[in-house]
Design a protein around this nucleic acid. Sequence first.
RNA 1: GCUCCCAUCGUCUAGUGGCCUAGGACACCACCCUCUCAAGGUGGCGGCACGGGUUCAAAUCCCGUUGGGAGUGCCA
Length: 471
Amino acid sequence: MSTDAPRYRFAPSPTGYFHVGGARTALYNWILAVRQGGTFVLRIEDTDESRNQPQWTQGIIDALAWLGIDSTDPHFEGPYFQSANAAEHVAAAERLFASGHAYYCDLTSEQIQERAKQTGTTGYDGYSRDRGLGPGEGRVLRFRVPEGHTIVKDLVRGDVDFDNATIEDFVLLRGNGTPVFLLANVVDDILMRISHVVRAEEHLPNTPKQQMLWDALGHGAPQWAHVPVLVNEQRKKLSKRRDKVAVEQYREEGILADAMRNYLMTLGWAPAGDTEIVEWQSIVESFRLEDVNHSPAFFDVKKLQAFNGEYIRLMSIEQFVEQAEVILMSPGVPWPADRYRPEMFRAMAPLVQTRVAVMAEVVPMVDFLFLAEPPTDDASFTKAFSGDVAASTLEEIAVEFESITWNVEQIKSAVEAVGERHGIKLGKLQAPLRVAVTGRSVGPPLFEPIELLGRDETLRRIRLALARARR
RNA sequence: GCUCCCAUCGUCUAGUGGCCUAGGACACCACCCUCUCAAGGUGGCGGCACGGGUUCAAAUCCCGUUGGGAGUGCCA
């Protein structure tokens, strides 16, 4: 491999479900690595921290693969685990101490706070800078921040100038000797020859510190790029506690991977032209960090669903059936597995496809076909049968149904005939019928599923509803 | 508090000094289509935060104000 092929990295920590914000950052890195013939390194930042759980690591890998970021692709490298490099992190810290870039300090957090309080300042004041302390139990290693300014050259934001005087001598090694994130992160990036660090904006304030570390360790800093965070309707950074951010959850609801990645790419950036729904390939070809917006973007589930609906309608009927059956044949479904009839769903599929935004909505659209009894919705039932002629016209429809040829056209004309007799429009007339057969007041077109259900079952359901209406 | 970032319709965005009486998408509203609901079609509502400059010309450049956000850990 050529040494100047760019190396990007994505470095999540396995502390929970995979976050949509992380997904977007991963996508950015992936697109750039693929297009530039470079590498996407996945590094799991699992250093200490009680929150880390092994199962989250697999979750990240699965979610990335779902989005098309796959270890079978030659651009993919990893996963690496930060914890495996602990010795390197400590060694780097020791080098920094040996070269005078870092020093030990024996102050406790409480003592530091006490000193700050007395001088009316905040943070650490550099107390041990020149005390010449060596390593020891409970002593932390701190970086000696040099005087001057640190300019972070950022592909998204341009040059950002930090006055080093505003940056305190930060900790590299904890009192127990373990390295902190800042150090581990930089050392790993150096070790893995990372050339481009593309990550969320929240890391921007850390960046001058990391850049000083790169310098002190004898390396030129990588190309930085800080992309805006994703926010909720309150304009706060998306949080796992408060907001619905799990990629897995959207996936389970039936958001399509193509829709998710396309939508994610329209946050902070937009494909050229008047359409937002575009081929993935064209995004890969045209995405540029320089074009990424500078302000936070609201993650709008409604718009995600609209995108998903578009993608659903873009599918061929075969693809739609295949995707739908992932949910229809899953254990979460309300009917016993052996009552599912693939041929029935296939017949209904075109009618369902234009009516769902997420795949999970397919279930309530066809459940009445597979359930022994239609679901009961008291409010719909009461409303549908509230008119004085509702029951009697349904009765007449049942009579017609007994003798007609059983197909969609005849079923429809039978209902229409009853309507004409009473001067009632089809739209109104079908309400009691719909509730009797499907249990709901809205749903896909009625006559097709009635044909599918068969004469006997349809009549049975009508009589049952009639009996109930007359109670 | 301090440091840094940001500011075009409600939301996501196009716009990089004249093509902008600011374009598209989602949402919303109306109408058409229609067996309910959708989908689809047509139309509508709605925005350059504010104040100063620079310029023949500013949404676009500069300064300030205001408003948002992020970071301020011996978390990552």
